[in-house]
């Protein structure tokens, strides 16, 4: 059956009275991406499903604040982020110091030239093992960096949207993205080097 477009005001009033058809539409559209994002953040299957459940409940409870402020997806992922943070009690403001900064810095001399140049990931790419290697390396990312990587690189969300969801500045976002990719690049290079020729 073709999808019927619903205006924002109809959507809001329908959701307020818990219209089963509209609830089903919202759940169908967003439940799976939210679940996958939760799994990508490192939550187990059951915990991820609980999180999705909480996100929708909070969404319904906060409809008045949602009105007209942002896209449904951004609002839902914003709730997911806050719920995930509550569960982990993690500090999402990226700290000034992170050991990966020193690792990356050690690859350059004092003038900023390479002393340990990047490794070509050719063998991992050719053997089609890059995806699995990334999955494996993601396990080494701290929660906030992992979350940013899921949104920015896996889901391909725009920087501005990720900033809005996480409630961080663009500068903070640059630091998170750079550290996440730095950690993953280091990890992938080790796997590339270890791979037999």
């Amino acid at each position: 059956m073709p999808a019927v477009a619903v205006s924002r005001s109809d959507l809001l009033s329908g959701l307020r009275r818990r219209d089963p058809e509209l609830l089903a539409k919202i759940v169908k559209e967003h439940a799976r991406p939210l679940f996958r994002a939760s799994r990508g953040m490192g939550f187990g299957r059951d915990e991820a499903e609980d999180l999705v459940q909480e996100v929708f409940l909070t969404f319904l409870e906060t409809l008045d604040r949602f009105e007209g402020r942002s896209a449904t997806r951004t609002w839902l992922f914003g709730i997911l982020h806050h719920k995930a943070r509550e569960r982990r009690r993690a500090q999402y403001r990226e700290s000034q110091k992170d050991p990966i900064d020193e690792v990356i810095e050690s690859r350059f001399d004092s003038r900023g030239n390479w002393v340990r140049p990047p490794v070509d990931l050719q063998r991992l790419i050719e053997s089609r093992e890059l995806r699995e290697a990334i999955k494996d390396c993601m396990g080494g990312l701290p929660a906030p960096q992992r979350e940013v990587f899921v949104m920015r690189d896996m889901q391909d969300l725009e920087t501005e949207e990720v900033c809005k969801i996480l409630g961080v500045t663009r500068t903070n976002m640059f630091v998170l993205v750079s550290r996440a990719r730095g950690r993953l690049r280091e990890c992938l290079e080790k796997k590339e080097i270890a791979k037999p020729k």
Partner: peptide, 22 residues
Amino acid sequence: SRVVRQVESLRKSARELWEVSD
């Protein structure tokens, strides 16, 4: 240039990973 290729490969494979998990 290799860093650029690394980031491109990382993003491409990450998106594929997301699609597969769909």
